[in-house]
Structure formats: C-alpha cells, structure tokens
C-alpha cells in the first residue's frame, strides 16, 4: 500500500541541527518557567489578598490564561501588540505567551499548596519576630514550592510542548522551527517530524524522571 520509500538517513544526518533546536526549545521553556513561577507567586498572593484592587487584576490574568488557547496568547503577543506599534520577535512573543500561560496555571497550583499550609505556621514565624513578608518568604514559600513541586514540573513539560507553537508565528530556531525548515527544503515531512517527536518525547521523559529523582532525594521530611 505504500508507494513511498522512507529516507531516514537524511533525517539522521540532520540530527545535530535538530538537537541545536532542542537547546533553544529548552532555553525558552526554562526562561518561561522562571518568569512564570515568579509572576505566579505574586498572582497567588494577590488573589488571596483582602484588597479587591489586587484581587481583580490577578483573577483576570488567571482566568484569561486558563480559558483561552495558549496559541491565542502567543498570537496576542505577536500580532495583537502590533496594533500599538509594538512588534515582538517570534522568540520574545513565544516566550511571553508561554510565560503568561504558565503564570496563570501555576498561580492556581500555588494557591492549592498555600491552602495546605496551616495558618499556625505563619503565626509561629510572627511570634519569633518575623514581619509578614519575612514569614512568607522564609516559612510559607519554601513549603509551598515543595508541595507544588511535581505539579510545577508537569507545567514545565507543558511549557516544553508549548514551545512547538512558535513555528506558527515564524519561529525557526527551536526544535519545531528547525524541523519545519528542513521539511520545507526536502518535503520529507514524516521522517523529520518523527525524529522531532522522538526528541520531544525523550526530553519530556527526562524532565519528569529528573523531577521524580529530585523529589525523592530532596524532600525527605
């Protein structure tokens, strides 16, 4: 039934190029997680605050991030901002879109973790002379990160998979972008993208395995 010969050698020859792309993919994923986690902490605090002026914008961020497609969020950064004369490069637009998305989802992850930390922990910190910010930073935050560690790493895998969307806004240096370039030159779509799929799969598995190992080694209490 196949009137087609698979040409894997060509794809394997392109492997170094694709691995370079995978590095860019990892770079965007790591940056988007770093930005996302940082913003998510602030969003979580804001959503739990008693001030409506802090709560409302944080809630809006979270709901938009969770109720619209990630691709839409990337389009907003890339095309939407053009209306204001702001033109973000594909790299920055992709990074911004994923970081926005990460922050929204991680905020809810962190809030769930915060609910699991007894209020008496803060009280204990305050009674030792810590201010509210210090008690949050030294006592609540470390526990929050530990409780939400595995869900956070799940989000990291999501971030890696989301980087593939960059190709739709013209990104050509990440794994999907490089693969698409090779595809456009050779029309060996299946072979190249099958290779890309394997690489994504291995990265995702490696990250989850690493996360499990870290969780097992570090969080022994």
């Amino acid at each position: 039934m196949f009137d087609y010969t698979f040409q894997w050698r060509q794809a394997i020859r392109a492997l170094p190029q694709m691995l370079d792309g995978a590095l860019v993919t990892m770079q965007i994923a790591v940056l988007s997680m770093a930005i996302g986690v940082t913003i998510a902490v602030f969003l979580a605090v804001a959503r739990n605050s008693s001030s409506r002026w802090l709560r409302a914008p944080a809630t809006a961020w979270v709901e938009v991030a969770r109720n619209t497609p990630a691709l839409f969020q990337i389009y907003m950064a890339h095309f939407g901002l053009g209306s204001f004369g702001i033109y973000l490069s594909p790299y920055i637009a992709l990074l911004a879109g994923i970081a926005f998305n990460n922050a929204g989802y991680l905020c809810e992850t962190f809030r769930g973790a915060l609910r699991a930390i007894p209020a008496t922990q803060i009280r204990a910190g305050r009674s030792l002379g810590m201010g509210p910010a210090k008690a949050f930073r030294l006592i609540v935050m470390p526990q929050m990160f530990r409780i939400s560690f595995l869900p956070t790493m799940n989000q990291a895998v999501w971030a890696i998979l989301m980087t593939s969307l960059g190709v739709t806004v013209g990104m050509n240096s990440d794994l999907t972008g490089v693969t698409q370039d090779l595809n456009a030159r050779t029309f060996r779509t299946f072979e190249f993208f099958a290779m890309a799929a394997v690489i994504y799969y291995l990265i995702a598995k490696a990250v989850m395995l690493g996360a499990r190992l870290i969780a097992w080694r570090m969080f022994r209490y």
């Binding site: 969307l165 993208f193 994504y200």
Partner: peptide, 22 residues
C-alpha cells in the same frame, strides 16, 4: 506518547502519514 509529544507535531505527522499511505 500522546501526552509527551507536542500536539502540533502529532497533527503534522498524522497528516503526512495519511498522505503517504494514500
């Protein structure tokens, strides 16, 4: 595998495969 490979890649692969297989 469906959860560890980007959906976009899955779509591209499936589309390419059905073209190859005719």
């Amino acid at each position: 595998i469906f959860r560890s490979v980007p959906l976009l890649i899955q779509l591209i692969l499936a589309n390419a495969f059905q073209a190859i297989a005719g």
